[in-house]
Design a binder for these strands. Structure first.
Length: 208
DNA sequence: ATCCCGAGGG
DNA sequence: CCCTCTGGAT
């Protein structure tokens, strides 16, 4: 089996296992998803969802964040970890949104990654979930599972994104990545992967 | 001790 | 490529 075949089998298997390719971050507008995704760095989505209700009640627009300080934002997000860089990034990002983008979250990767603290993973997630564009969201689960599946043997996040883009149908890639997250939490975990109950056990080479 | 839907800098 | 940033959960 070549990589493309395995990729397509993985797409089908996960689609059957997780019909709803949902994002577990809670948000009601593009800015909230952008910020929640930034907060999710080295932190569980469950933890992010605990802090965001109060955060988004206090700050409703990019201007609200831009008018605040990293110190105030930090009070709301501290339990998510990496709080100094995250809070500094969020305020700087909001300022750039207001100054260069009329306070509106841009709809393309090139503009999104200009924002402080926004990298390819977050930019792809927003492009896929908010703007319905083909996206390859390369996070810790995506990297681990696609490597175990033998779809690549790379370390660089951007190289993995482009390698997967070549293997996945554009219309499927975004949902596929969401399903990788669900699967990574429940079955193909970092430690003690539950291969015996995995829907891809039949064709996974298990390159751990 | 290790991992959690990362990003930026060296 | 590598490292660092960080609290919470297991």
């Amino acid at each position: 089996m070549d990589k493309k075949q395995i990729a397509l089998m993985a797409v089908d298997a996960l689609k059957a296992e997780y019909p709803d390719a949902i994002c577990s971050l809670v948000y009601t507008d593009p800015l909230q998803l952008l910020i929640a995704t930034r907060l999710a760095a080295q932190c569980t989505d469950a933890r992010v969802n605990i802090v965001t209700p109060a955060l988004f009640e206090r700050f409703k627009t990019a201007q609200d964040f831009a008018d605040s300080t990293p110190e105030e934002v930090a009070e709301y997000i501290k339990s998510c970890g990496l709080y100094k860089t995250k809070s500094k990034d969020i305020v700087a990002m909001a300022k750039m949104l207001c100054e260069d983008f009329d306070g509106i979250v841009p709809d393309n990767i090139d503009d999104l990654i200009k924002l402080p603290g926004i990298g390819r993973k977050t930019a792809n997630l927003v492009c896929g979930d908010i703007f319905g564009k083909p996206a390859v969201v390369v996070d810790t689960h995506c990297i681990r599972i696609t490597k175990r599946l033998g779809l690549h043997n790379l370390k660089d996040q951007k190289k993995i994104e482009f390698a997967l883009r070549d293997l996945l149908p554009p219309k499927e890639s975004n949902d596929f990545c969401h399903r990788l997250v669900l699967h990574g939490r429940a079955v193909c975990t970092a430690r003690n992967a539950k291969c015996e109950s995995c829907c891809m056990d039949g064709f996974c080479p298990k390159n751990i």
